[in-house]
């Protein structure tokens, strides 16, 4: 592929569209200019009107908007989103922030810091399933520990020597040196 074509693909129409979309959403999604403006309220929205306003604030359509139960966790009107870990998102899609696989104005999960590519993949499938992994681990470690415990009580090879000659056991002990004959 020639260089001009590569350059042309680099600034493809799609990328331009993505870019302009990101720019255009700025004024639409913006619910504030300062951190306090983005702060969720203390309580979930009480009526339908407040609900619609809150959905707009988080850049969501009211049908998708759902809040956490008001049970003291303090999430207020923050939206309850499905858990989609970054690892399971499309790796080839065009993102505004490819490092985070995230688009501008996209609502974040409450625990979004747990679901980055560097953390946890919810849809991960192991070559060896987890229960087999656990079995292998505890099989080896437990087996070794069992042998260790048994070694205290089981002797396989006989001891081929007499017990230690102690000076305190009150017996007579002899060395193999011979006394000088007068």
């Amino acid at each position: 592929m020639s260089l001009p074509l590569l350059v042309a693909r680099r600034i493809s129409p799609r990328a331009v569209v993505q870019h302009s979309r990101a720019l255009s959403t700025t004024s639409v999604n913006s619910a504030g200019y300062w951190n306090k403006d983005w702060r969720p309220t203390d309580d979930p929205p009480a009526n339908e009107e407040a609900r619609r306003a809150a959905a707009k604030k988080y850049g969501m359509i009211p049908e998708d908007y759902e809040t956490y139960a008001n049970d003291g966790t303090g999430y207020g009107d923050y939206p309850k989103l499905p858990i989609i870990t970054a690892e399971s998102k499309d790796p080839h899609a065009l993102y505004d922030f490819p490092e985070l696989k995230r688009n501008y104005g996209e609502p974040l999960h409450v625990d979004a810091d747990l679901y980055g590519e560097d953390r946890w993949d919810r849809t991960r499938r192991f070559v060896v399933p987890l229960h087999t992994q656990a079995l292998m681990f505890f099989g080896v470690m437990g087996g070794t520990f069992l042998l260790f415990c048994l070694s205290e009580y089981v002797r396989i090879a006989p001891i081929r020597m007499m017990p230690k000659h102690m000076g305190t056991d009150g017996k007579k002990h002899y060395s193999f040196e011979l006394e000088d004959v007068e």
Binding site: R160, M162, H165, H173, Y174, L178
Partner: peptide, 22 residues
Amino acid sequence: YRTGEVTADANYGFDGKKRKER
């Protein structure tokens, strides 16, 4: 090997010589 008991006399088989006592 548990008790270390010796059945024979300690000096038996040393041509009449005696072993040194420890």
